[in-house]
Structures are given as C-alpha cells and as structure tokens.
Design a protein around this nucleic acid. Structure first.
Lengths: 121, 121
DNA sequence: TTAACATATGAACAAGTGTTCATATGAGCA
DNA sequence: TGCTCATATGAACACTTGTTCATATGTTAA
C-alpha cells in the first residue's frame, strides 16, 4: 500500500506545500479573536457609522445634532449608535431628555488614520 | 414674521446646538474619502478575508494552500482573493500554474494590531 | 395631569454579500 | 495533440444589513 505524495484535506483540496501550511497553521491566532476582529471591522464598514465616529472625534454630540449634521433621520442614527454602543466604541451620558454620545476608545482614531493612509497611497 | 429659535434641516430634524453642528460640519472630511474608508473596512469585515490576510502575514502562499489552511473550497478563496486584490491589499506573482499571493500594504498589520487591542480591552 | 420633546425600538423591505456549483482559462507534461 | 492541474469566473441562493415607518419610552414644562 502506497502513501500518496499529495496530502488532501477534508474538502479534498490538493496541497502544494504541506510543511508551509502546517507552519502557518501553528502561527495563526485562534478562530475566536479573528472572528471578533472581523466583527469590529464590520462595524467600521459602513459610511454612516464612519461619519458618526468622525463627528465624535470633534465633539460629543446628541442624537438629533448628529442626525442634523449627517442629514439623516433620527431613527437611522439611533439604530447605528446602538451598533456602535454594542461594540463598545461609543459611550453615552444622559442629560434630561438629551443623550450625549462620545467615543470610548483611543485606538479608533489611529485605526482610521492608518486606513486613510492606505486609501491615499 | 418671527424667526424660529430652533433651526430645522431638510428632514425636519430639530437642532439642539446649531453652532456645534456647523463647527463639526466644517471639520468633517469630504464624503468621498470617508466612503472609501468604509469600503476598506468592509473588506476587513469578513473572517475569511481576515484569516487570509493573517496567513499572508506569515508567508506568501498559493491559492490551494490557503484553501487547505482554512479548510475551505478553492473557489471561495479565489473569490475572496479577488476582493482583496481589488482593494490593493494583496498582490500576486504567477509561477507556472501556481499563483502566489502576498500582502501589498504595510499598514494592514498595524491596523489589525490596533483592532486586536480594542477587542482585548 | 397633559403636551411637547428626545430618543429608542420593532417590523418590514430592498439591497448587498459569501458560498457553492458548474465550468472556463491557461500552463505543464506525456 | 490531449490530459491534468491550479486558478478564475459567472450564476444562483441563502443570509445579512441599513433604512424607513410607526410607535413606545421616558423626561421636562405647563
């Protein structure tokens, strides 16, 4: 009985360089943090949310002023702020009827700047 | 005829702090780069693409080895590599039948590391 | 209390996305 | 030439997502 030279994975994919695949596999982070990272970038992957965050770079703002700034409905902004809140990217402070949102993470600005550098290249 | 105290935008949103909205509006970047930035993060916002990129941090790889590493079909990987290629995040080099992909941007690793920092917080 | 206001929320729908499947392309080899 | 292999591609489909619309919640002021 011969051993096949080319290894195969469960999906029956041929492997060109089995050693390399194993080496890289061992260096890969666990699935979960990579999944979480994708979830974070998914949040950044919408221009409304990008613009909300960019506005909050400049100043803490209430929902209606953000809606006005971006020329969008209060409801749309509120929905998106919830997404940002769920990702711990923004926090809020209530003041009477008004709710003021602000950024909750110092990394965001740096991430955005690096992203901009890629775009400008 | 009286001038209303509260200004309204085309969507009939009340404005709490008109001056602030104007100040922030002037500091906001143009729509287009913000739209492009969202497009970039959209590309990062998928765990398959995140894992492909992370693999390429370790080594340049051909399509079938990436498919094997991630235990996914060659077709799925090829489709995703095209997305990465269109965003100028990866480049490729042909060698006979085989196509080797590699990263095309030094910012990516930094962006991912900062993203990870947010997750770990 | 009632009215006005700021915000949040749920349902619904159109638009977008990732994978699969089948097949095309193009290079190397017999 | 014809066959095999690595990759690319198009169509189809299920699934996800962002907005709108209607309405609920909760606060302030009269």
């Amino acid at each position: 009985m011969e051993i096949e030279n080319e290894s195969r994975n469960p999906q029956d994919q041929p492997v060109a360089d089995k050693e390399l695949v194993e080496k890289v596999r061992q260096k890969m982070p666990d699935e979960e943090p990579l999944y979480d990272l994708a979830e974070l970038f998914k949040v950044f992957g919408d221009s409304t949310r990008i613009r909300i965050i960019w506005a909050l770079f400049e100043a803490d703002m209430c929902v209606c002023d953000i809606a006005n700034l971006l020329n969008m409905s209060q409801s749309a902004i509120s929905h998106q702020l919830r997404v940002l809140k769920n990702s711990r990217l923004v926090k809020y402070k209530k003041s009477g009827k008004t709710v003021y949102y602000s950024l909750n993470d110092d990394h965001i600005k740096k991430i955005f700047e690096l992203g901009m550098e890629h775009i400008m290249e």
